[in-house]
Amino acid sequence: MIVRRETRKIHVGGVPIGGGSPIAVQSMTNTDTRDIEATVTQIERLQDAGCEIVRVAVLNQDAATAIRSIRDKIAIPLIADIHFDHRLAVAAMENGAQGIRINPGNLGGPEKLARVVAAAKNHKVPIRVGVNSGSIEKDLLKEFGYPCAEKPDALIESAMRNVRLLEEQGFEEIKISIKSSDTLTAISGYQQLSKLTDYPLHLGVTEAGGLIAGTVKSSVALGILLYQGIGDTFRISLTRDPVEEIRVCFELLRSLKIRERGPELISCPTCGRTQIDLFSIAEEVERYVQTMTKQIKVAVMGCVVNGPGEAKEADIGLAGGNGVGIIFKKGVLYKKVKEEDLLETFLAELKKIEGL
Rank of each mutant, 00 (worst) to 15 (best):
H11G: 02
G20S: 00
Q26R: 07
E37H: 15
A64N: 08
I67C: 09
K73E: 04
H83F: 01
Q98G: 01
I100A: 08
R101Y: 06
G108M: 14
L113C: 15
A114N: 15
A120D: 02
H123L: 05
V129A: 11
G130F: 07
S133T: 13
K138V: 14
K138P: 14
P147K: 05
C148H: 02
E150A: 07
E150G: 02
D153S: 14
M160Y: 13
N162Q: 15
V163F: 12
E168R: 14
F171H: 10
I174V: 14
S181G: 11
A186S: 12
Y190Q: 04
Q191P: 02
L193Q: 11
K195P: 13
T197C: 15
L201C: 03
E207I: 11
G209A: 05
G209P: 04
L211K: 12
L211P: 10
L226E: 01
Q228C: 00
I230D: 00
T239A: 12
D241R: 03
P242A: 08
L256H: 00
E264Y: 09
C271Q: 04
T274M: 03
E284N: 02
I296R: 03
K297Q: 14
M301K: 08
E310T: 11
E310D: 13
I316H: 03
G323C: 15
I326T: 06
I327P: 02
I327W: 01
K329E: 12
K335L: 06
E340T: 15
L356G: 09
